[in-house]
Design a protein around this nucleic acid. Sequence first.
DNA 1: GTTATTATGGATACTAACAATCCACAATTC
DNA 2: GAATTGTGGATTGTTAGTATCCATAATAAC
Lengths: 162, 162
Amino acid sequence: MQYSKSTDYALHALIHLAQAEGRENIGIKPLAHSLGVSESYLSKIMSKLRQDGLVRSVTGVKGGYELARPPRDITFLDVIQVIEGRQELYVCSNLDSKQHRTYFAGPDEAPPQRHDQCLVKRVMDGAQQQMDRYLRGHTIQTVLDEAAAVRSEECSSRRTQA
Amino acid sequence: MQYSKSTDYALHALIHLAQAEGRENIGIKPLAHSLGVSESYLSKIMSKLRQDGLVRSVTGVKGGYELARPPRDITFLDVIQVIEGRQELYVCSNLDSKQHRTYFAGPDEAPPQRHDQCLVKRVMDGAQQQMDRYLRGHTIQTVLDEAAAVRSEECSSRRTQA
DNA sequence: GTTATTATGGATACTAACAATCCACAATTC
DNA sequence: GAATTGTGGATTGTTAGTATCCATAATAAC
């Protein structure tokens, strides 16, 4: 199980747009070149991001893309869900198997269960919630901030060396 | 992105074995039947679990599978890593793109970076760690316990009704 | 030892998702 | 009107996951 390359491209593209915030639109050409991916493929991804309201686009000369919201309001989870879809990490394909009856089995004449959710799924959903919470807490701005922090650290260490 | 059906089968199979702990080996036939999956396919999965030391197997008449460790020592993460492989959830395919140079870009004559890790990857690795920690904290025994809890709750509510 | 049973591993096939490209078209600036 | 730029449809190749079949090896029971 692994996130697709598309997600990778999308995240990096958004960061690139964020770095140019407020100045100008960025066309697919420089964007694709900067990420090292073909224009045709990246344009598909950008379209998705546009349809879901993460970026705006302008056609024609001087056109291109820009963020539709401030970087602080674009979470990693947002981006992932747009590209990968809002699907659950785990789906139990066994729901009508004997297995789940044994989980809850009282006497055979037991009434229909209220707890009809797979116990494995309960755990897996918990895991996904952990991850989602983390991804919701990190935004494009987070990366920008870290990049700035790294840069200033670099500079000071270089000054120390000299 | 989604966990494979194989992971689903593996988890349910292990729970099944755990429920029969210490009594007898369980053959592929009843196991597959109980999960609602073909014997041939499940046997591949069981082989993997054996190769990685999660179950033991005996061939021949009266053969079958049993857990190789107590249920408390088989974590969800163990099972997932055996089936899905120990791969990282996120791989940055852009490492040599302009993008990462702009993250850290001081003056162009800057020395080779120590912080050569993608900042996007840093976030994504953090997310995976959150999930892994959760999955490491839940075991086959966890499910057994919850199943018991649900059962007793069912019983008591049935008693109350009567 | 022979037979029936049971797991193992190799080979193979099918399918769906992902990755990638190309092209005709629409919108916009100059 | 011409050049530029994004959009969406169609198409193709590749890979991972799903699934099956069969020959083989190991073991218990007789």
